[in-house]
Design a protein around this nucleic acid. Structure first.
Lengths: 229, 229
DNA sequence: CCAAATAGTGTCAATTGCACACTATCTCAA
DNA sequence: TTGAGATAGTGTGCAATTGACACTATTTGG
């Protein structure tokens, strides 16, 4: 292969906004930088794209390497390319966002070699580079996405209560929802499978657990079904 | 500045899907390649990102250089990075899509030094690289965007009839719309300003011309107004 | 067994969506 | 000048959906 471009090239990285949901808060996974620039600041997990790997693969690899997160919802978000976004040299970053079930992945991330931690999105520290801006764009995208596609389930454990689901949507959409109307709507969509299990270890009446019906959802989509919250 | 990455770097380009609307068809602006690879094939306008220009600037520059298109709606679409998408070497491309008023820009594009032409999206030739795939993604995005934001006006002349507007939406959304319901809905949104002009040179009753009220739309947005077709 | 905590359930009114067909106006050609 | 062709413009009724609203049921722990 001969090069097609004689100009200097920007470096190319991926960065991931990893969302989790826990105790009523939407959280983002950050990593503490140990090198300059921005040593000591928190930043998004990410790194250089290798020359023979696709962008999606690069994002998946970085997630695995830096956070131990494995099979998750992952989607490209936006590409950030302000010439001065990295003080060293020109770096263009393809940002992704991921939705993980915190109940499964929560522990692992915090015990990695590098210092990693979950932060509530409403209480983030100042981030390195333009990562604050990237998180903003990701939040906006998640909000839009959640309204039109059933991605919320990616943030909940496999079995969940309707109240958990409602709280999740209230958090993402930043708006309160009426309990009875919410239940009527979500149940009428035929996307939830009622299990015969109930919550454990609660000091009050236990709620029924539901599962998301992924196969059923794919069927419905083919028939033109539109998810709308 | 010292380089941050010792690996070989992918080349970085931008490609633009330029949409126009004419005679009831949604069209895309393509350029005929004169160099290998894919010499003679049609491709999206685009080219290398320079090391000191932002991605948006690169897209605007390429639009200007290759198509003469100037002040238009332009938005980042998606970044395409399959390792084998360019047979020469690794090239990652940040794709944009643009909406232009064909009535204003139509002529210029076709008379550029390089061979450029508008093609109906339903009748595209085989494109170079993965550009066919990029156009597909752009069409999908336009469809979603048009449902939730009033971008359609970017494709119409400054003054237009309600019938033109309806045809445009029918084309983008690939679905027929009821004339009376469409008019009721769009007029009730208070986004259109009725001019005192009517169509010229038609062999039948002339329709009233409307303008899109951009300032009014920004006001409404602040008050939480949601465009929905 | 009672207090605390949350689960779960139905109705009515208002709004919105959707199907549907005729009259008005203008041009052009005979 | 007039009639045919073409498109503009207009309203109603029914069905479906949304949104507001409050009480009873169940479980635990003290």
């Amino acid at each position: 292969m001969k090069p097609t471009c004689k100009y200097p090239r920007p470096a190319l990285t991926v960065d991931c906004v990893v969302f989790g949901f826990d105790e009523g808060d939407l959280k983002v996974l950050l990593i503490e930088r140990d090198l300059e620039p921005f040593a000591g600041r928190w930043a998004l997990p990410g790194g250089f794209v290798q020359v023979d790997e696709s962008l999606d693969d690069a994002a998946l690899r970085k997630l695995r390497e830096e956070t131990g997160v494995n099979r998750v919802f992952l989607e490209q978000l936006h590409t950030f390319g302000r010439p001065d976004r990295d003080p060293r040299e020109r770096v263009v970053s393809v940002a992704y966002y991921a939705l993980v079930k915190l109940s499964l992945h929560g522990v692992k991330a915090a015990t990695d070699a590098r210092n990693a931690a979950w932060f509530a999105v409403n209480d983030l520290p100042r981030l390195a580079f333009d990562h604050g801006e990237i998180v903003e764009v990701a939040l906006q995208r998640l909000k839009n996405k959640a309204r039109h596609e059933p991605v919320g389930f990616e943030l909940l454990p496999p079995k969940f209560t309707l109240t958990q689901l409602q709280h999740l949507y209230e958090t993402i959409l930043e708006t309160p929802l009426d309990k009875r109307n919410f239940r009527r709507k979500i149940l009428s969509m035929d996307l939830l499978i009622e299990t015969d299990e109930i919550e454990k270890n609660v000091a009050h009446r236990a709620a029924r657990l539901y599962r998301f019906d992924e196969a059923g959802y794919r069927q419905l989509r083919k028939k033109g079904f539109l998810f709308e919250l």
